[in-house]
Simulated scan of single mutants.
Amino acid sequence: MKKNAWFTGLMSLLLLISVGCNDDDEPNVEDSEAIGQVGEVEPQLEDIPDVVATVNGEDITKDFFAMYYVPTLKRTVEQQTYQEEEEKNDEEALRQQIQDDTLELLIQQQLLLQEAKSRNITVEEEVIHQQLQSFKQQYESEEAFQAALQEENFTKEELEQDIKIQIMINQLMEDELKNVEVSEEQTRELYEELNEMQGENEENMPSYEELQPQLEQQILQQLRFEKRQELVEKLRKEGEIKVYL
């Protein structure tokens, strides 16, 4: 098992093992004020064509692209507040990078969605409604929920559309992994890697039995990621993609 392939997951598990962060990890007032001082990078949507790409004849429109691109650009700018000045990107480079990343994400999403439809994978409206309600419960009121949607450049209808897409893709990946089983050998190997990464704190390591469910989930998550990438590459080779951005 290559360590670099598992690094992100291992770090997540190590976080579960560790004592946890203290109050000093929370942003202070100065940090919050700094965010407000960051100059906003304009998305310049007027430069975006009405159709940014077609995937097997289906358009990815400018409006759909902007729904993901604008909030991603905003969050990235805010995150750059905490970077050293020499690490920050100039506005044009940042815009281009976020545009490229967003377009690639949407092309992959469209390929997977088309494959899900070809397998007759559907989502009941009630399932979408339940997921929407679970989102709403994270906010104190309907007004707060609507304000959060506006902040993220989403309408309620667009959020419902995104929920449906993600559920369909998740079901597609479950279909891809339906015959995959995680062996005890795999979980024990991952446990030993965690042990090694703990170093001097090894004595604080929970037992294998305690961590086994998380270990299995981490391995399945990695397998799901790898299977998704394989499926995207297969669909990309078989399909026809035209990019206009």
Rank of each mutant, 00 (worst) to 15 (best):
E185K: 00
M173G: 03
L194N: 01
N204L: 10
M173N: 06
I163Y: 06
E189N: 08
V182Y: 03
D175W: 07
E202Y: 10
E176F: 01
D175H: 15
E209Y: 05
S183W: 00
T187R: 02
L177N: 05
K178H: 12
E181I: 01
E185A: 08
E185Y: 00
E176R: 00
R188Q: 11
E189C: 07
M205D: 04
L177G: 07
M205E: 06
E176I: 00
Q186K: 04
I167H: 06
Q166S: 15
N179Y: 13
E196M: 12
P206S: 07
L172G: 01
M173L: 10
L211N: 04
E174N: 15
L211Q: 04
Q186S: 11
I163W: 04
N170H: 13
M205I: 09
Q166H: 12
G199C: 10
I169V: 15
E209V: 07
D175E: 12
E185L: 04
N204E: 14
Q186M: 14
Y208K: 04
E184N: 02
I167D: 07
E185T: 10
E192G: 07
E210S: 12
R188L: 00
S183M: 02
Q166W: 11
G199Y: 08
E203C: 05
M173K: 05
K178N: 14
S207A: 13
I167L: 13
R188G: 01
M168F: 10
V182T: 02
E176M: 06
E189S: 13
L177A: 12
E185Q: 06
E209G: 07
E202W: 09
K164F: 12
D175S: 13
E192V: 07
N170L: 11
Q166T: 12
G199H: 08
E174A: 14
L172N: 01
N195Y: 08
N195V: 03
R188H: 10
T187E: 00
V182R: 03
M168Q: 12
